[in-house]
Design a binder for these strands. Structure first.
Length: 834
RNA sequence: GCCGGAGUGGCGAAACGGCAGACGCAAGCGACUUAAAAUCGCUCGGGUGAAAGCUCAUGCGGGUUCGAGUCCCGCCUCCGGCACCA
């Protein structure tokens, strides 16, 4: 072994060995338990920084750890390589994305290689390649066949900067998630996936995902936003139409004093009276012009206009006015509400502004008086601001058959009443909208649809896939799909009748590409199908998925949707794609996320050059709890480099490693100091194993450091040539192997270890060696530590308490008196209560 | 407003209801060296004390318990998600 630790010499050597021997290439193996670990595949932007390294180091550690534990481990890598960033960069630099993308991939692959990441590269996929997106198009057709892909004209989100439509999920606070531009609404005919059909299952199955962070499950629950209530029909005076209303508080129907329609509601034009027509139309025009941001900023001030029409309350026959207001959303519920200003703050504000009647129908329990007994407490139909709004629980008043009923029962009772009289029914509503997948941009998978004058919209048949994305395209965005300009692409024969027809020219949202890639990894070379179900069923669900929390809704919800659709179609068995999810924190520099544009990156190449990959890897594991953000520290990384140098020196002077947990001698043959060292070894095995299992990598590294410190002290006293030291050294390397794989491999092979260290079994805890011989029992008086005493590990309660009572300190506190009570925690603590 | 998560030394952080601050960074002192680097050793939450020790201390206020950073109740602050969703 070299006398100095030289990572630049040893790391490339072992990387080559792992790579050349295809050490981590795997096949299905029914005899072994499988473990599918996956890190979210990256967008190939070019250069990796330490934020990425944290992510991939965790993935690599899991793969190596589970392999040593005897699992058949699938750890693949691929490239999420369609999408806007490549296109924007290409426009800026004048390099075509089809050239730039493979270059970037090659660069990132090289950096992963140099960091010692191991993947089954035989399974590499890239979503921009035709042999991948052929199957993305197949997925579209599957959706289409099952009635889950459809085209409709709708008011959609449009990013004026990126010049394309966006999914709801890609609009954050009224701004484009990618570029921050203010999103506007446009009426366009677009393709959607009917994810709302799966809303219930996507919500309910979140309960099964116990291996997911609570935070992510909550975010998905909020996003799906299920509420339950009722739909009710309100007849319109002088018209046959009835207005359907959705409400979560059907029990307050007796307090409804007007109806409100969203500006987009189709009945607005039908029911509006001649006198009000002009006012209503100009209001609607105004409302449509407002962006989401404007609507948010005017949150307090509600606006609306009277339609001139009247409706009848189905429960009590009351006649009341119908208004139009944009505080009611056209896209939620039925786009129409019953306004109950006595029980809803928004309706109350609106009623006050426009002088509409307010009536109390719910009263707080304690204040209940029989309706009519005291008009001051139970006001009947009053106008003005003196009738307060009350939204809490209570008792129904002014509500006919519901009077006196507590609100805990009134909701169900009202629904029963509505259903019995045929005036309404129980209903559920969701915040989730269908997923808009069309994009008017170039760098994506073409939507496999042809429009024929005779046959209409025709899906491209499987044997004609892929619909290839042409490369000779002028793709500067102008609000229209760039593919429209390519005659040879647009003009295509109708697959059904053969007459000349036109192709769909929009491409798919890149989130479609990434919604199924984890399945392609199971069978990446299949030319007949997206994957062989038998192989997919062997590997899926993914046992451990790792990635950034920024995908909590978009990617993770879409993938779950795809998995359920594929399960329904019989392609997979699992209902959920990702069994356990880990969301790692960012690494920040100067308090901000590392990013090239901000210029605050620590490139992984620099770290490898200066300290080697193992130092970089170990440091990002040690930097803090892996699910929390952590600030980069140059000093910290130097400390970690010092540690690896210390490890190196522990092996100076012919230290021999053997098999991990065997020890040739009986326990009694070891000296006291040997036994102490071995105890530390086995306690460390136990702690590191436990900590890796529960993703506490920072404390796993600490534990290994402690072991190294203990070994150093032992070595200073007894030298390295003892069997106890050899066993300690062996286990130290094995524990370090998944985290710092190169140095572990180098020392292993230089110290007589057989084969690769990465093919050794993970060390087992020897309970006999781990067992303590003596314990330090803490002696408390009234819960405060006053003394400690060393006792044999198998000490009984009586001896321990006895020993405690002998303590001089305890005697001082007792002052001759008898203790009131004594608590004993076996082998740990005696608490004397005085 | 609703829903999650988090508040511990100078810093990153540890602690099955049982010795608060492991491990590391920074800092200080010392050894080695002509010197520096590297390496090694010691100190390192506050107050008090010569020391042993005593005492205060895990965002704030209560509570449960022999014993609370940890459990319960009520607050405060920060981070994240949702939000005119009827």
């Amino acid at each position: 072994m070299d006398d100095r630790y030289r990572p630049r010499e040893i790391e490339p050597r072992w990387q080559k060995m792992w790579h050349d021997t295809k050490m981590y290439f795997v096949k299905e193996d029914a005899m072994k338990p499988k473990f599918y670990t996956l890190v979210m595949f990256p967008y190939p932007s070019g250069d990796l920084h330490m934020g990425h390294t944290r992510n991939y180091t965790i993935g690599d550690l899991i793969a190596r750890f589970r392999t040593m534990q005897g699992y058949n481990v699938l750890n693949p890598m691929g490239w999420d390589s369609f999408g806007l960033p490549a296109e924007s960069a290409a426009l800026k630099e004048g390099i075509h994305p089809s050239v730039r993308t493979p270059d970037n991939i090659a660069r990132m692959k090289e950096q992963l290689y140099k960091t010692g990441m191991i993947y089954d590269w035989d399974r590499e996929v890239a979503s921009y390649q035709p042999d991948y997106y052929k199957w993305t198009q197949w997925m579209f057709l599957l959706m289409y066949e099952r009635g889950l892909a459809y085209r409709k004209r709708a008011s959609v989100n449009w990013c004026p900067s990126d010049q394309t439509v966006l999914a709801n999920e890609q609009v954050v606070n009224g701004q484009c998630e990618r570029c921050g531009a203010e999103v506007i609404k446009k009426d366009l005919t677009q393709w959607f996936f009917r994810i709302t059909e799966y809303a219930d299952r996507l919500l309910n199955d979140l309960d099964l995902l116990e291996g997911w962070p609570e935070r992510v499950r909550t975010m998905q629950r909020n996003w799906i936003g299920r509420s339950t209530g009722a739909e009710m029909e309100f007849p319109v005076e002088g018209h046959d139409e009835k207005i359907k209303v959705y409400t979560t508080r059907p029990d307050t129907v007796f307090g409804a004093t007007f109806l409100v329609l969203a500006p987009e509601h189709p009945l607005v034009a039908v029911i509006t009276s001649a006198e009000q027509k002009q006012e209503v139309e100009s209001y609607i025009t105004l409302a449509r012009k407002r962006t989401d941001i404007e609507r948010l900023s005017t949150e307090k001030e509600k606006t609306g206009v009277f339609t001139g029409a009247y409706a009848t309350n189905p429960m009590n026959g009351e006649r009341f006015p119908i208004w139009v207001a944009d505080y009611v959303l056209g896209t939620y519920g039925t786009g129409a509400i019953q306004a109950v200003p006595g029980s809803d703050e928004r309706d109350h504000a609106f009623a006050i502004k426009y002088g509409l009647p307010i009536m109390t129908v719910v009263q707080p329990e304690g204040e209940f008086v029989v309706a009519g007994d005291d008009p001051a407490v139970a006001p009947v139909l009053k106008q003005g601001s003196d009738v307060p709004v009350y939204t809490g629980p209570g008792v129904m008043v002014n509500s006919g058959p519901l009077d006196g009923m507590p609100t805990t029962e009134s909701k169900d009772a009202t629904i029963a009443l509505l259903e019995a009289e045929g005036k309404g029914k129980r209903a559920t509503s969701y915040r989730l909208r269908d997923w808009l997948i069309s994009r008017q941009r170039y760098w994506g998978a073409p939507i496999p649809i042809v429009y024929c004058d005779d046959c209409g919209e025709v899906p491209v048949p499987l044997e004609q896939l892929p619909v290839v994305l042409p490369t000779d395209v002028e793709f500067t965005p102008d609000g229209q799909s760039p593919l429209l300009r390519v005659e040879s692409f647009v003009n295509a024969p109708c697959p059904r009748c053969g007459k000349s027809a036109r192709r769909e020219t929009d491409t798919m949202d890149t989130f479609v590409d990434s919604s199924w890639y984890f399945l392609r990894f199971c069978d990446p070379h299949n030319t007949e199908a997206p994957f062989d179900p038998a192989k997919a069923n062997y590997w899926t669900p993914v046992d451990q998925y790792t990635g950034g929390v920024e995908h909590a809704i978009l990617h993770l919800l879409y993938s779950r949707f795809f998995m359920k659709v594929l399960a329904d179609a019989g392609w997979v068995q699992a209902q959920e794609p990702f069994l356990r999810l880990f969301t790692q924190g960012m690494i920040t520099l100067g308090g901000a996320k590392m990013s090239k544009s901000k210029g605050n990156v620590v490139p992984v190449d620099d770290m490898i050059e200066r300290y080697g990959a193992d130092t970089a890897r170990l440091f990002v594991l040690f930097i803090g709890p892996p699910d929390e953000d952590a600030e980069w520290s140059d000093r910290g990384v130097e400390g970690m480099h010092r540690f690896l140098n210390r490890v190196w020196r522990l092996f100076e002077g012919k230290v021999t490693v053997g098999s991990g947990s065997s020890h040739g001698q009986a326990l009694g043959d070891y000296s006291k100091s040997d036994r102490d060292l071995l105890r530390k070894v086995h306690l460390t095995i136990s702690k590191v194993t436990f900590d890796i299992e529960r993703f506490h990598f920072n404390t796993a590294v600490s534990a290994i450091m402690e072991l190294a410190n203990t070994m150093q002290a032992y070595r200073d006293a007894h030298g390295p040539q003892t069997s106890a030291y050899s066993e300690a050294a062996t286990n130290l390397l094995l524990l370090l192997a998944p985290m710092a794989p190169h140095i572990a491999e180098e020392i292993w092979q230089a110290s007589g270890g057989s084969d690769s260290i990465h093919r050794q079994p993970w060390p087992a805890v020897n309970e006999e060696l781990a067992a303590a011989e003596v314990v330090t029992v803490v002696i408390q008086v009234n819960g405060k530590v006053r003394d400690k005493v060393e006792l044999p590990a198998d000490v009984g309660q009586d001896e321990a308490i006895n020993a405690a009572m002998q303590s001089e300190r305890v005697k001082q506190y007792l002052d001759g008196k008898e203790p009131k009570k004594v608590h004993y925690v076996a082998g740990r603590l005696v608490n004397i209560v005085i």
